[in-house]
């Protein structure tokens, strides 16, 4: 085989591209973002579920909420503590977390996810335009 040089260059270029995030950051990790709680969220102390659960699974929870409300016309969520919530992203979640930029976006940007919930659901129901 006389393609050795070609193959080696190809492999090197491939590795360079694949490992881009590592050499670009020179092995350091970007600092994890700090999310800010609004006074209202702080006062409430507890979200719909525990903080750990919400941090890890809020997307699954929202997915279930969405399907329950839209497809099964069930709008009330009773959490393990027996507390009732209206399953609504705009009217329940964002009522407390009315600081989308400091709460939602920071983490989403860090994780490089771009949920398009806000193309339809309005960011902050309390604020007047």
């Amino acid at each position: 085989m006389n393609n050795k040089a070609l193959i080696v260059t190809g492999v090197v270029i491939f590795l360079l591209i694949v490992l881009f995030p590592f050499w670009y950051m020179r092995g350091k990790a970007a600092p994890p973002p700090e999310v800010e709680l609004t006074p209202k969220a702080k006062a409430a102390q507890k979200c719909v579920r525990s903080t750990e659960y919400m941090r890890a699974e809020h997307m699954q929870l929202l997915d279930v909420w969405r399907d329950s409300v839209v497809r099964e016309s069930k709008r009330i969520y009773v959490n393990p503590d027996g507390k009732e919530f209206n399953m609504s992203l705009s009217n329940t979640c964002l009522d407390c977390h009315s600081n989308k930029a400091e709460f939602c976006d920071r983490c989403h940007n860090y994780a490089s996810v771009r949920p398009y919930c806000w193309s339809c659901h309005i960011e902050n129901p309390k604020e007047k335009t």
Binding site: Q60, V64, I76, Y77
Partner: peptide, 14 residues
């Protein structure tokens, strides 16, 4: 997703 709807949680109509 099962957990979000798990046994200790109730989803109901208003």
């Amino acid at each position: 997703e099962q957990q979000a709807t798990g046994a200790d949680v109730i989803i109901k109509e208003g």
